[in-house]
Each structure stands twice: as C-alpha cells, then as structure tokens.
C-alpha cells in the first residue's frame, strides 16, 4: 500500500503539490494521468524515495521510502521513461544488479527477454531506446518487488511490444502488488489500468475506477449533439467524440460503447471537472464543448 498524507513538494520556490492525500491499494494497476509538467514523474519518484516530500509523509507498505532502506528498495522498482543501463551484457547485469534483489526470478527474466526478443549477447548500451525499455521492464517484472512504478512504459515500444507489455503487465497485477503506471498514451493501456488517478494543478483531481466510470458514463461517436445526454464533446474530422451520461433505466450499451474512452474522460476532467463530477453523481449539466471545438464547429458550418 502506498499512502500520501498531506504531502507537499516542489522544486526550489515552485510548489508542485500542496497537502496531497492519496491511497494506492495492492492488487490494482493504477494509471497516473496528467498534463505535461503536472508532476507524474515526480510523484513516482516520491513513491520510490528518489525525491523527498517537503511536508507531510509518504509510506510504502508502512515504510518511509525517503530513508532508502535497502529492504524497501529491494521491494520496489522504478522504471524511468528513458532507462539508464550500464555498458555490460545482460548476464553481467544479472550478476551485478539482480544480486541486490533476493526475490529476483532469473528464469522469468530470461523468459521475458526471449518473449521480447532482446539480444542476450549485446551490450546494454547498444540497445535501442525501445530495447532498453523492454529490458528494464523485464527486470522489473522479474524482480519480485511488491511495488512497480512505471513511467511512460509504452513510449518507444513498437506495436507488437505494446501488446506484449499489456500481457506482461496484466500478469504482474497480483493481489499483494501495487503497480503504478504513468502514461500519456492512455489508449495503449486502456483496458489494463484501473483505477485512473488524474493529477492536475498540484492535486489529485479524480481517482476513478473503471466500474465507477462505466456505471455513469459511456463514449460514442455522433454526427450531432442534439438529443443526447452529452457530458463532454470534442469535434473530430467526421463528427463528435462524446462522453455520454448513462440514462437510468436505459441500456446504453446497446447503442454506445460499454466503457468510456479514457482520453475523453481525462480531457473532460481537465477542461470541465464540474461537469464530470456532476455526471458521475448522476446530476445533469449542459454539454461541455471546449472553445476550440466550438470554433471548429462554426467553421465547418
């Protein structure tokens, strides 16, 4: 379990988080979503202990990560967006670095290397960006750690590797393990991350489970917004991508998508948090259309 209590953090005089509270329970793959600069990576680093809060506290399975106790460090893995690897071969890496992790599963690691088609005879520094990422993710999955912190894991991966990553991540979501994934590319992991945590303006704007979202919202593509319970809409080339409120007593699944598009949910959370809150609580508000999409609509007329 990861627990932030009244946590404040910033860089120099720039305050990034103020009085942040957040609980992340084991058994879930949390999707950490936020705009560029919202502090997603900083949050992951705070959980890992690479950064320390200025006020308040953070606990990971009851321990302060800021103390960097060896046992806690061995029980968590942080995979940065652009992983650093030493100039040695995978076997050498296992001897030098996996030795610090008592629960590291070498067999699983080698199997993942094979699955992700990573060259075992190549220097790690000769790996491409995507290969370094796959290597770091393989190491994380085989680490036996209860806390996995993954920063933009799908960036730089080719399409088959994204599918492989989804499969590997799904297998990593064990009951006693907390997996936190920060991502911009929410569609890559849409059916995997649950719940989503939306970070904006130095606070946690929403923590929403798929079940909660699916109960209140669905997404659809419409040619017109008329006559539909639209919560949020974005214009695209051929119509409108919309978040619809599910109408009580009506089976929306028949005509619209079963679960809402997470990118639309994220956009709605940032642009119209009140509308999203109202929709989640069953209240109705007029559809929110971002100004730039209204202009596009007028221009198309």
């Amino acid at each position: 379990m990861i627990e932030f209590r009244s946590m404040s953090f910033g860089y120099g005089k720039k305050n990034l988080f103020s009085g942040l509270d957040l609980n992340l329970e084991p058994g879930s793959v949390y999707g950490l979503l936020g705009l560029n600069g919202a502090g997603k990576t900083s949050l992951l680093k705070l959980m890992a202990g690479a950064l320390r809060p200025q006020e308040g506290s953070i606990e990971v399975f009851g321990k302060d990560p800021g103390l960097r106790r060896a046992d806690l460090l061995a029980d968590m893995v942080f995979v940065p967006e652009d992983p650093w690897l030493p100039a040695i071969k995978p076997e050498g890496w296992l001897d030098r670095y996996a030795a610090f992790r008592p629960l590291f599963d070498r067999g699983r690691f080698m199997a993942l290397m094979d699955e992700l088609a990573l060259d075992k005879d190549k220097l790690l520094t000769k790996y491409s960006y995507g290969q370094r990422k796959k290597f770091a993710l393989s190491a994380a999955m085989a680490s036996g750690a209860r806390t996995l912190l993954l920063d933009e894991p799908t960036n730089g991966l080719d399409i088959p590797s994204k599918a492989q990553l989804r499969r590997i991540l799904a297998a990593a979501a064990e009951p006693g393990r907390v997996v936190v994934v920060s991502t911009h590319q929410v569609r890559d992991l849409e059916h995997l991350i649950d719940p989503i945590v939306i970070v904006h303006g130095g606070r946690i704007l929403f923590t929403l489970s798929n079940e909660e979202l699916g109960r209140s919202l669905c997404s659809a593509h419409l040619s017109s917004l008329e006559g539909k319970p639209v919560v949020y809409a974005e214009r695209d080339a051929v119509g409108w991508s919309v978040l619809l409120a599910r109408e009580p007593g009506k089976d929306s699944e028949a005509e619209e998508g079963a679960s809402p598009d997470l990118e639309l949910v994220f956009d709605a959370a940032i642009a119209a948090p009140d509308h999203l809150t109202a929709a989640l609580s069953g209240a109705s508000l007029p559809a929110y259309v971002p100004e730039e999409h209204l202009i596009a609509k007028e221009a198309n007329r």
């Binding site: 680093k45 890992a48 202990g49 690479a50 960097r68 106790r69 060896a70 046992d71 460090l73 061995a74 968590m76 942080f78 940065p80 652009d82 992983p83 650093w84 670095y97 610090f100 992790r101």
Partner: peptide, 16 residues
Amino acid sequence: HDGKAGTDWLLLPASP
C-alpha cells in the same frame, strides 16, 4: 550526481 544514472544509483537496493 548523473542526470540519468543518478536515479538508478539512488534506488539500488543498498542503504546510503
């Protein structure tokens, strides 16, 4: 102190 390797160094499972 390294911008990239530093985080790995800090988080290597051994105490400071």
